[in-house]
């Protein structure tokens, strides 16, 4: 600490941005719990082949629709398959749908937003009008259309969900790009002759990331839910895939007869989506420079 600044006390050290982020993030206890939950889930998903007690596609016609027991922690479904094992395996699929679709939509959307905000003019209005069109198109309909055109299957569900994430990312990034473009350090970089592509990738992109990260974390939850809705209208994952939404949609006839068939996959979706959202809230608080 400098001797010329006696007002600064020893505890008021200047922290690195990362340390600052951690300090604030750890203060949001719900976000920390949510993050740990998701970490655990990811580990469980990764370890599913080793920790799942049964084969997720293993039929047992003598043990159909049994309630939870010591042998089957979450009971069995209408084919006698172990629901707990299916949820573990399904975590791989559902988490991948969430992550991949948002990443895919995010990358395209960020690229469009950067170019749009940075270049301005005709390109900007073109991209923004296209985003308007995409936004005005009802999201689930777009998904129905894409799945109908490409055929059902988990990959196409990912594309479908990705496409309607694009315009929101594009708008978000365009907004921050516009304000960052005026920033002093960008001006300085430009003055010393840094080329446009470099400017966008090295100087502006990192500045837009905080808001993007927050949005990503929330969007993942939405994507998992959208995949479930697609299963509900019969355009989701293919059987016998243990994707959570498909399990929930498939078991919905048993509400009132064997409610455990939908309860556990429903709970899995609920907890996961909740956790992603709480994590997002925590990240927002930690990343937003205005919140002290």
């Amino acid at each position: 600490m400098s001797t010329t600044a006696p007002a600064v006390t020893a505890t008021d050290t200047i922290r690195s941005p990362l340390a600052e982020f951690w300090r604030k993030f750890l203060r949001r206890r719900s976000a920390v719990v949510a993050g740990l939950c998701l970490l655990l889930l990811a580990l469980a998903a990764a370890a599913a082949p080793w920790i799942a007690p049964y084969d997720p596609a293993g039929f047992d016609y003598d043990r159909v629709l049994e309630g939870p027991s010591w042998a089957h922690w979450a009971g069995t479904d209408s084919y006698g398959r172990d629901i707990f094992s299916r949820i573990l395996w399904g975590a791989r699929i559902s988490l991948s749908v969430g992550l991949l679709s948002v990443m895919l939509g995010g990358i395209v959307g960020i690229a469009l937003g950067l170019v749009s905000g940075f270049r301005g003019g005709f390109i900007d209005s073109l991209i923004m009008r296209l985003c308007d069109v995409l936004l005005a198109f009802p999201g689930i309909l777009l998904a129905i259309g894409i799945v109908a055109i490409l055929g059902p299957g988990i990959e196409n569900v990912i594309y479908a969900v990705a496409i309607f994430s694009i315009p929101v990312f594009a708008r978000l990034v365009r907004g921050s790009t516009l304000s960052l473009k005026q920033a002093v350090y960008v001006d300085a970089a430009r003055a010393i002759g840094v080329r446009d592509r470099m400017l966008m990738l090295r100087h502006i992109l990192p500045g837009t990331l905080p808001s993007v990260i927050v949005y990503v974390s929330m969007r993942i939850g939405t994507s998992i839910l959208t995949a479930a809705s697609l299963s509900f209208i019969g355009l989701g994952a293919q059987p016998p895939s243990p994707e959570w939404g498909a399990m929930l949609a498939d078991g919905r006839s048993y509400i009132g007869v064997a409610s455990h068939v939908t309860f556990y996959p429903g709970l899995a979706i609920f907890i996961t989506v909740l956790a992603f959202n709480l994590l997002g809230d925590g990240l927002r608080d930690a990343l937003d420079p205005k919140l002290r």
Partner: peptide, 20 residues
């Protein structure tokens, strides 16, 4: 905390399940 938790829980339900 309670308010935000309740609010966020609202998003996390698959709506067809909740409806049924």
């Amino acid at each position: 905390h309670v308010g935000m938790f309740v609010a966020v829980s609202g998003i996390a339900f698959p709506s067809f399940w909740l409806g049924l």
